[in-house]
């Protein structure tokens, strides 16, 4: 076992896959300029030295090209792992992701596949509205894409390896405040955790139960999973027992783990930093309502970022993003229903 941050776990996953398979390469703006940062968050720093700058390809600031090059090279059998620094820039490459990467397999009648990984740092971190969004929900709406969101070092390495070996386009949402890399972020949470030295992968579509409980099922991803765990500690002192589930991957989604939990608790709270309207929680909520409504003893509660762009002022940002206080308050209300 090694103790790694998420940033180092991701780096180690990419490096091990590059050693294992000569078709894996990484690319992106500033992905590893000597003397640079290694992407915006140090994940790819130093890879160029080991693998050379043909396999660690620094690109122009051309998001359409970056995504298109991933699609084209992937169709020829390469396995690109791209970093676009901030998930917000995904919008600059939407055509290549949604019209191209996601549809190639289908449009060709299953004759083409696109094994590519697009890494998108996400989450609010005092950078204002265009370097802050949590966009997972957008991409869960696109048939043909897989969407994952690792929140621990162990998951980061296992899910990244699985993403690189997957034969479909995979979007990886990595939270800026969870990296724990050398680039220090205000309000960051330490995610240093034990990571096996030996090769392992984590299957997509398997949620993790982070804490067991019997009164409320809280499903929360990325940073919000940590906030939910903090809230659960406070609630425990008040006699409210929360089971906290981390979905880990949004497409495919592990409904079964949520259903099994609801059989115990009968109450569902969904927490995400993605904003409220049509966030991924809306899908989970309606799926439960459609398929398992008789497991519920109370209405489903969604705690999400308010439907605004992310404001800069830390006071405002803290207000719109779900806090542990908001989770606690909503949980108390839910127990009174």
């Amino acid at each position: 076992m090694a103790l790694l941050s998420i940033a180092d776990a991701l780096k180690s996953a990419i490096a091990e896959e590059m050693r294992r398979d000569p078709l894996v390469f990484c690319l992106g703006e500033d992905v590893d300029i000597p003397g640079g940062m290694g992407g915006a968050f140090t994940v790819t720093k130093g890879l160029g030295e080991e693998f050379g700058y043909e396999r660690v390809l620094n690109t122009p600031i051309s998001e359409i090209m970056l995504a298109g090059v991933c699609v084209g090279s992937a169709m020829m059998g390469m396995r690109p792992v791209a970093d676009l620094q901030y998930g917000d820039f995904l919008f600059c490459m939407m055509d290549q992701l949604v019209n191209q990467a996601a549809k190639m397999c289908y449009m060709s009648g299953g004759k083409v596949h696109v094994p590519m990984v697009m890494r998108a740092p996400c989450g609010a971190s005092n950078r204002g509205a265009q370097h802050a969004q949590s966009l997972e929900g957008f991409f869960t709406h696109v048939p043909g894409l897989k969407v994952i969101c690792p929140s621990t070092a162990y998951d980061a390495k296992g899910l990244m390896k699985q993403a690189i070996r997957d034969d479909n386009p995979v979007l990886v949402f990595e939270h800026k405040l969870l990296y724990g890399g050398k680039r220090k972020e205000k309000d960051a949470i330490s995610t240093i955790g034990e990571v096996p030295e030996e090769d392992y992968t984590i299957e997509f579509g398997k949620a993790a139960v982070r804490r067991e409980g019997k009164d409320i099922t809280i499903v929360a991803n990325l940073l919000m999973n940590y906030k939910a765990l903090e809230a659960a500690q406070i609630l425990e002192q008040e006699g409210i027992s929360c089971e906290v589930i981390d979905p880990r991957t949004l497409v495919p989604f592990d409904y079964e783990t949520v259903v099994n939990s609801l059989k115990k608790t009968g109450r569902l709270m969904i927490v995400h930093e993605d904003n409220y309207n049509c966030g991924w929680g809306a899908q989970l909520g309606s799926w439960i309502a459609e398929n398992q409504i008789f497991l519920l003893d109370a209405p489903i509660v969604r705690v999400a970022t308010y439907d605004t762009p992310i404001p800069f002022s830390p006071v405002l940002e803290n207000y719109v993003i779900p806090s542990k206080e908001r989770i606690v308050e909503e949980a108390r209300k839910l127990m009174k229903v």
Binding site: M65, G68, V71, G72, M76, D95, Q100
Partner: peptide
């Protein structure tokens, strides 16, 4: 597979060519 987004095949072709080179 032919591409019906104007210009959509251009970065993809760069990617195909990059794969040949790599």
């Amino acid at each position: 597979v032919a591409n019906a987004i104007v210009g959509g095949n251009m970065p993809i072709s760069a990617g195909v060519a990059l794969a040949f080179k790599m």
